[in-house]
């Protein structure tokens, strides 16, 4: 059900392209990469909060996807299958970045000192949202993005993340509550 990801294509279907790659036409994989680059990239950018980290995770996911293409049981669902790989890559990259200490501002004071986002100043709003997302625990951020930004159903999210549906619902709820709280704090400053 590639549709559950809200992805619609013209031209060769995912299944057709996957079959061509498996038959030795490596070039057909370029079409799949181009098809999913921006869509999956958006998730990685929001999840990791850093464009270079995101592009690296994305590239890694595509390469791993290619190398394990034999294990993609349903080629028509290539996009959903690749999402699963990317979610894992982002978890690894996020953990690595956290160890490096170079990602995700966890400085609450910095956030509350930040100027209020003004609709006229998109850059500031952009920055505020990014820092608010960064304050969420990774599993909350992951659940929030998959549910609200990528529009996945809970059963799909459960399949991708390995978490139970009730746990995921709880994470999305907590993520929403925390985001509201963070913005209320910002408003009070």
């Amino acid at each position: 059900m590639a549709q559950s990801l809200g992805i619609h294509h013209v031209g060769a279907s995912d299944g057709e392209l996957v079959r061509r790659v498996r038959a030795g036409d490596t070039g057909a994989y370029t079409a799949l990469v181009a098809r999913y680059r921006d869509r999956l990239g958006r998730y990685a950018v929001h999840m990791l909060g850093d464009r270079e980290d995101a592009e690296e995770a994305l590239q890694d996911a595509f390469v791993r996807g290619y190398r394990s293409l034999a294990r993609c049981d349903d080629p028509e669902r290539f996009g959903a299958w690749l999402y699963g790989i990317l979610v894992n890559r982002c978890r690894t990259a996020g953990a690595r970045a956290a160890r490096r200490g170079r990602l995700f501002v966890r400085d609450d004071a910095a956030l509350t000192r930040a100027p209020l986002p003004s609709p006229a100043e998109r850059a500031e709003w952009d920055d505020t949202v990014r820092r608010a997302l960064a304050r969420l625990a990774p599993e909350y951020r992951e659940a929030f993005l998959l549910k609200h930004i990528e529009d996945l159903e809970y059963d799909e999210m459960a399949r991708l993340t390995g978490a139970g549906i009730s746990a995921l619902k709880m994470r999305v709820k907590r993520a929403r509550e925390q985001l509201q709280l963070i913005f209320r704090e910002a408003e009070r400053v």
Binding site: T30, V33, A34, R37, D38, G41, R42, V45, H46, A54, E55, L58, Q59, F62
Partner: peptide
């Protein structure tokens, strides 16, 4: 939409 560097391809 987020635009990713096409050089990723």
């Amino acid at each position: 939409p987020v635009q990713i560097d096409p050089a990723v391809d």
